[in-house]
Simulated assay, not measured.
Amino acid sequence: MSIKKYVKFATKSFALPNVCVRLRELLDCPRSSAEDIGNLISIDPSLTAKVLRLANSSLFRFPSQIESVSKAINVIGGEALYNLVISETASTAFKCFDSELIDLKQHWHASVYSGMLAKHLAMSTNAKVIERFFVMGILQNLSELVVAKRSPELYQQYLDSDKSLLPYQRQKQLFGFTFAHCSGIILESWNLPIGLFYPITHVNDVARQSSDREIGVLALSNRIAVRQLDKENHSDIELFTSEIANTVSLDMEMVSNATDYAERETVKIAALIR
Results as ranks from 00 to 15, higher is better:
F60E: 07
V51R: 03
P45L: 04
S242G: 07
Y155A: 07
G78V: 08
K163D: 00
F197Q: 01
Y155V: 04
F94A: 10
D230V: 00
K149W: 06
A55D: 09
T11C: 15
F177E: 10
N191A: 12
S210N: 10
R132K: 09
L52N: 01
E243S: 15
V203Y: 04
P63F: 08
L117R: 00
V85M: 11
I130M: 08
T48H: 01
E131T: 15
V7R: 06
L272Y: 08
L159M: 13
L187C: 13
A207R: 05
D36T: 04
N257P: 00
H202M: 13
M254D: 12
L104E: 14
F175K: 01
D160H: 01
I269W: 05
I244A: 15
I244C: 13
H234C: 06
S33M: 03
K231F: 05
A118H: 08
E243N: 15
S249K: 07
R31V: 03
E265N: 08
K163R: 04
A55M: 08
D260I: 00
H181W: 02
K71M: 14
G115N: 06
A270K: 03
S57W: 05
V51Q: 03
K268E: 08
V248H: 11
R61H: 07
C20H: 08
L159P: 07
G184A: 11
N74G: 15
R264G: 01
N204Q: 11
P63G: 11
N39F: 01
F97P: 09
W108P: 07
L145Q: 01
L165H: 09
P199Y: 03
S13A: 14
S143E: 13
M136H: 06
S164L: 05
I86G: 04
V75D: 12
E153I: 06
L121W: 05
K268Q: 10
I102M: 14
V69Q: 03
L166P: 02
P17L: 07
E214Y: 06
